[in-house]
């Protein structure tokens, strides 16, 4: 599903954010990406979501060479990559349903189908009763679930999450991880960037560790006890 080959990303002001990074994710995998702040976790996700392009190396996502993908194709690539952010990135002046509907409206779906699928996504994250509320009226955990519903509403085969539990207490973090595990069970590939070591250690998934832009460890999934 994802293949990084000798990927380097250099920012003119900051220098190398990633240096010669190599890894691959098979379809249906759920993988943690960890490392200290500034290690390059977010850069990896930005490169996969095509918010940035690599300085060197090749990135393939679902067979597409991202370095060569024309700018006009980027929106269509992003529709196949759901993204979840630590700060939720919701439209505060729209309802929960409007927020979740946005990817479908942008994809040009009709209103009936948009409403049906957005409600189904909200049901999956347990927020159907809040569809008419504005995001600011919800708790941080609920807002994160709205962000997740928006990420999955287009049924993308790949889900990227950047510190999805960063602002949440442990109970809510578990809820979110439980949601991700459920999506993974139905075949969605997940790459979750987090520096929550306790969370990583308590879950049996494969873990990639970055340090100063280099991939320093690729720990395979552990067996569940």
């Amino acid at each position: 599903m994802i293949r990084f080959e000798h990927v380097t990303k250099r920012y003119p002001a900051r220098g190398d954010a990633l240096r010669d990074v190599n890894f691959a994710l098979a379809p249906g995998e759920m993988v943690f990406l960890t490392g200290h702040s500034g290690a390059g976790k977010s850069t990896v996700l930005k490169l996969i979501g095509l918010l940035e392009r690599p300085t060197r190396g090749q990135i393939r996502v679902a067979g597409r060479d991202l370095a060569r993908l024309p700018a006009r194709r980027i929106p269509y690539h992003r529709r196949e990559v759901g993204m979840v952010f630590q700060d939720h990135r919701l439209l505060v002046d729209r309802t929960v349903l409007d927020n979740v509907s946005l990817p479908l409206v942008a994809a040009g779906l009709g209103p009936e189908e948009v409403a049906r699928r957005a409600r189904a996504a909200l049901k999956q994250v347990g927020l159907l009763r809040h569809e008419a509320a504005c995001p600011v009226a919800l708790s941080s955990g609920e807002q994160q679930r709205v962000g997740i519903a928006r990420a999955i509403v287009g049924r993308p085969p790949l889900l990227l999450a950047d510190e999805p539990t960063g602002n949440l207490d442990p109970d809510l973090s578990w809820e979110i991880m439980d949601l991700f595990a459920r999506f993974n069970q139905v075949g969605v590939t997940l790459l979750i960037a987090t520096h929550d070591i306790a969370l990583i250690r308590s879950l049996p998934y494969r873990t990639l560790t970055l340090s100063d832009g280099r991939l320093v460890s690729d720990a395979p999934p552990r067996r569940r006890r």
């Binding site: 979501g49 918010l51 006009r72 929106p75 269509y76 690539h77 992003r78 529709r79 993204m83 990135r89 919701l90 439209l91 946005l102 990817p103 942008a106 994809a107 928006r150 287009g154």
Partner: peptide, 16 residues
């Protein structure tokens, strides 16, 4: 600006 950024992230085209 934030709204545009979010639209870009969820796959909105330039025309949209």
């Amino acid at each position: 600006r934030d709204e545009i950024r979010i639209q870009e992230l969820v796959g909105a085209t330039n025309a949209f």
